[in-house]
Design a binder for these strands. Structure first.
Length: 953
DNA sequence: AAATAGACGTA
DNA sequence: CGTACGTCTATTTA
């Protein structure tokens, strides 16, 4: 690993670091989970801790000579007088953050760091003034701020450090970086911002104008004045929009200009730092209940940090501590090939393995016991780590090597290996599985299976643990996971792109072993970091009783795959291709040109320019949408224009048939010729709610909504030795979960009644007898019910049902009058997510929602809908996972050959062996119905048939 | 060659 | 101005 310290050591200039205190405090607050950081008296400390470590990190990296921190101060500024709505939509900072600001300031005082507040001005103005002072005194100034207004300060002597997605990747915004990003100079940036507006600060810009257009105009006319002077020359909608809003823009420009010459009452001499008040710091850290490690970390930086001259820096600087450097001690490696070597190695290291029997044997057979909290804690330190390398794609897996590690030593076995060693390995795995740590149990099972080996439930899976800890973070490989969770930098150059996947059969270079040893040590480190997190959140049950067992079920489903009637599939492809071609010909005739029907751009031209049709909706990038619902709309409204109408009809037919052709072709390409089966891969660590997803190919989006598409399901058939497919699905699971979790008596009664659910609900909502409910009423209520769990707006509901917004509004009101507790429950989901920072499913699966605190309304609203949906969709996913484990076990214990082959969120597809239909239907239905006991019954409907389409019910 | 946008299939 | 996904194609960008 290389030291990447460039900085100012080579330059003669000294550096001034100016920090936007509020910006950093916000960042720290939302980056650290509050509940992991509070004192016994309940004082939140996450922002203080984050502030201290983030600041220390930046100081370590940048080595400034002077340091000043600017804070906003309560009360308005001159900006509020210019723009009354300034920052009007910004929500007050959370109470838990506000109480930490004085603590942060105390910390800075104790560390000898100067902080500055100036009534009547914002922190940004203080920063601008300090930067200007530094500039005059010949310093290079770094401005640490997450506020883009600071970009106007950038010049050759001022660089803004702007945090990216992760705080640690600070972008150094110098003049060139600003030009690259915005196409204008830093000095022009405020002009651009004035045109665009700032939603976070409630400053409207010119509607329809974003960074791109603003930059174009600025470059054309030089400045805002130039644009204003030539506003009449700018054509189009955007020009019109500009003229209408020019006053607002000029006002914005006044407001976003930073004041650079405040009388702060401090001089640069006051900005030295490093004279620590050890006593005050000690008292503060005790009060905050920070551990010794934090103190050492902070002291290390601030003791050696500032106040020194550039000449001192060579020796005083801690070795690039910006990323808590973690020493990946590679284990000693022994390559072995005989059973004697293996036995000797195992015997030598067995005494290092000391996982408690209770934990090692934990099986969680009784799923109702899900609040049994098993703690792994220290156990992960006395374990084997096991990994294998090769190709883990289902249906074509292939293993090259396997390694076992016991702390400091590892054995590496190449495949194929001798029979006696194989047998010893199998014995080892079956005896030791409960003491083994892996990364990706499912993938490992594919690799092991390629060597005719098996592994019963391991103790811990770092891939699954990472997913439970942060379901929104997606690491594509072991290395990314390490970089994220361990905060280390792994040299990736020689690493195969796919992490543990390695398709290169020749990869037996000397490097390969070292990479594999590194993989092992990363897995061990990850376990050491993640196990305490899982423990602390009481999620080990989820991992051991749900995720790990379901991994095993998924492995079997992937391995077995689904048999395809390839002849019929090819026939369908040809038919759809012919239909699509015909539709295309027709469309071309109406259009009078051979345009590409799959190009939205060309379609826009033909529809909205050539035909002159009136566009309906816009896409998010501003162009006019040509999606199906828009085309449908245009089709209806263009009845008097024969040519356009004909074109639209043909286009719609082409869209549909061509899509089906694509789907069918992708299935053809995915069939494994060896067994004429499709082996999909179920991703278990991708969907943030806890659902599975399916790739290569995606078998969870095979058409089902209209007859033509549904035909495709007919090519999924039972394979040789099987006679039918069984499909079982949950009816209205998510609604049932809502009934249970909300405790709403009316909704619970609706489910217990056993009647046509939507009709029954409609009769309650409209206060009419069930017999009098019309089809429209039923379908409206049905849409309302389903929309609930998504946070559907009345506007959206109106749009979907093609009714007036007021009607939708009144439907919603009546609905919530009838099911009051459902309403309260949904609100409570968002409220608790806001205060805790995360949501939780019935089984403790968490999802964090930092965006709930966003100052951006769009982002915040989206987060609220996601937070509303996550526990509901996630609980349904949990229930299905448990059902799969139970069903799989029931089938195994009944000793039948029938097997689960697909899962489509609320549906299981089972390949049924001759004579087992009734028994298997009963077993699967029972497993699904009783996966969990709710206040309402779980209703499962089953169908059986000669193919997947015929199994529908 | 890789990334983005737009469209659309599922629960 | 509805959540969660994956895949295809066209188009832009490096």
């Amino acid at each position: 690993m290389t030291d990447t310290v460039t900085l100012n050591s080579g330059s003669s200039k000294h550096t001034l670091l100016v920090v936007d205190g509020h910006s950093l405090a916000f960042r720290a607050f939302f980056a650290m989970p509050v509940d992991n950081f509070s004192t016994s008296t309940g004082q939140a400390t996450n922002a203080v801790w984050g502030f201290a470590t983030m600041l220390a990190q930046v100081i370590d990296t940048e080595q400034p000579d002077l340091l000043g921190v600017a804070f906003d101060v309560k009360g308005g500024t001159f900006r509020n007088e210019l723009l009354p709505q300034y920052k009007g939509t910004r929500e007050a900072a959370p109470e838990e953050l506000l109480t930490q600001l004085p603590l942060i300031q105390r910390l800075l005082t104790a560390l000898g760091v100067t902080y500055i507040e100036k009534p009547g001005y914002e922190g940004d103005d203080v920063i601008a003034t300090l930067a200007t002072m530094g500039d005059h005194a010949g310093y290079h100034t770094l401005v640490l701020s997450g506020d883009r207004d600071a970009f106007q300060l950038v010049d050759d002597n001022v660089t803004v450090l702007y945090p990216g997605h992760h705080f640690k990747d600070l972008k150094h915004m110098d003049p060139q970086a600003i030009i690259d990003k915005y196409k204008v100079t830093p000095a022009q940036y405020p002009d651009l911002a004035a045109l665009r507006g700032e939603t976070a600060d409630n400053i409207p810009g010119v509607p329809g104008v974003g960074d791109g257009f603003a930059a174009k105009w600025i470059n054309q006319y030089g400045s805002l004045e130039g644009i204003a002077a030539h506003a009449d020359e700018i054509g189009g909608k955007k020009g019109e929009s500009l003229r209408a809003n020019i006053d607002q823009v000029m006002l914005n420009r006044k407001v976003n200009a930073l004041v650079r010459d405040i009388d702060l009452g401090v001089s640069l001499n006051d900005l030295t730092f490093g004279s620590i008040d050890a006593g005050a710091l000690d008292t503060l850290f005790k009060e905050l209940e920070f551990g010794a490690r934090t103190k050492t970390r902070v002291l290390k930086t601030f003791n050696t940090g500032g106040g020194q001259t550039a000449a001192d820096q060579g020796k005083g600087r801690p070795d690039n501590q910006s990323q808590a450097e973690l020493d990946l001690n590679l284990p000693d490696n022994t390559a072995i090939s005989t059973v004697q070597q293996f036995d000797a190695w195992i015997d030598e290291h067995r005494h290092d393995i000391a996982v408690s029997e209770e934990v090692a044997a934990f099986k969680a057979k009784d799923f109702s016991d899900h609040d049994t909290h098993i703690i792994i804690g220290e156990n992960v330190h006395h374990t084997w780590t096991l990994a294998a390398w090769g190709d883990d794609r289902p249906g074509r897996s292939h293993v090259q090597a396997l390694a076992i590690e016991a702390g400091k030593h590892a054995v590496m076995i190449a495949f194929p290996c001798e029979a006696a060693l194989h047998e010893a390995l199998n014995a080892f795995l079956s005896q030791e599985h409960g003491r083994i740590i892996v990364h990706g149990y499912k993938e490992l099972l594919h690799l092991l299976a390629a060597a005719h080996l098996d592994l019963d439930l391991p103790l811990f899976d770092t891939k699954l643990a990472g997913y439970l800890a942060q379901p929104d973070f997606h690491a594509d490989g072991l290395i990314q996971a390490a970089e994220h969770f361990l905060d280390i930098q792994v040299d990736e150059e020689t690493q195969p792109a796919q992490g543990m996947l390695d398709f290169d059969a020749e990869s037996t270079q000397p490097d390969a072993d070292e990479q594999r040893l590194r993989d092992l040590s990363i897995i061990r480190e990850l376990a050491g970091t993640l196990a305490p997190v899982i423990d602390q959140r009481e999620q080990y049950w989820l991992m051991r009783a749900v995720e790990l067992p379901v991994s095993r079920v998924l492995f079997e489903m992937e391995r077995d795959g689904a048999k395809i009637d390839t002849v019929r599939l090819r026939g369908m492809r040809d038919q759809f291709a012919q239909d699509a071609r015909f539709a295309q010909e027709t469309a071309w005739q109406f259009a009078g040109s051979q345009l590409n029907l799959q190009s939205p751009k060309q379609l826009q031209k033909v529809l909205f320019e050539d035909f002159g049709l009136k566009p309906t909706k816009r896409t998010k990038s501003g162009s006019y949408t040509t999606n199906a619902s828009a085309l449908q709309d245009l089709y209806i409204r263009s009845v008097d224009n024969e040519q356009a109408n004909g074109f639209l009809g043909a286009l719609l037919r082409h869209r549909e048939t061509n899509k089906l052709k694509q789907i069918v072709q992708s299935l053809i390409d995915a069939v494994n010729p060896a067994d004429e089966r499709i082996h999909t891969t179920f991703e278990q660590t991708v969907a943030a709610t806890g659902r599975l997803s399916s790739v290569d190919p995606n078998l969870q989006n095979i058409p089902n909504r209209n007859a033509a598409g549904r035909e495709i399901r007919g090519v999924f058939v039972p394979g040789e030795g099987y006679e039918s497919l069984l499909s079982c699905d949950y009816s209205q699971v998510e609604l049932r979960i809502m009934a249970d979790l909300s405790g709403d008596e009316a909704l619970i009664e609706a489910f217990r009644s056993g009647m046509d659910f939507h009709k029954y609900v409609a009769s309650m909502v409209y206060k009419l007898p069930v017999e009098e409910i019309t089809g429209d009423q039923r379908s409206h209520v049905k849409a309302m019910s389903y929309g609930l769990a998504y946070g559907l707006s009345t506007y959206g509901l109106a749009q979907q049902l093609k009714i007036a917004p007021r009607e939708a509004e009144s439907l919603k009101n009546r609905y919530f009058e009838t099911f009051g507790k459902v309403h309260d429950y949904l609100e409570s989901l968002v409220t608790t997510a806001r205060s805790k920072g995360y949501t939780e499913t019935m089984f403790g699966r968490r999802r964090y929602f930092p965006a709930l605190q966003s100052t951006n309304r769009v982002a915040r609203d989206a987060a609220e809908r996601a937070a509303l949906n996550a526990p509901i969709q996630g609980s349904a996913a949990d229930i299905m996972k448990i059902a799969m484990i139970q069903a799989s076990r029931a089938l195994r214990e009944a000793d039948v050959r029938s097997r689960i082959i697909l899962q489509i969120h609320d549906e299981l597809v089972v390949e049924v062996a001759p004579g087992e239909a009734d028994q298997v239907t009963a077993l699967v239905r029972n497993a699904m119905e009783h996966a969990v006991e709710l206040a309402v019954p779980l209703d499962v409907s089953c169908g059986i048939g000669a193919d997947w389409q015929l199994a529908a019910h």
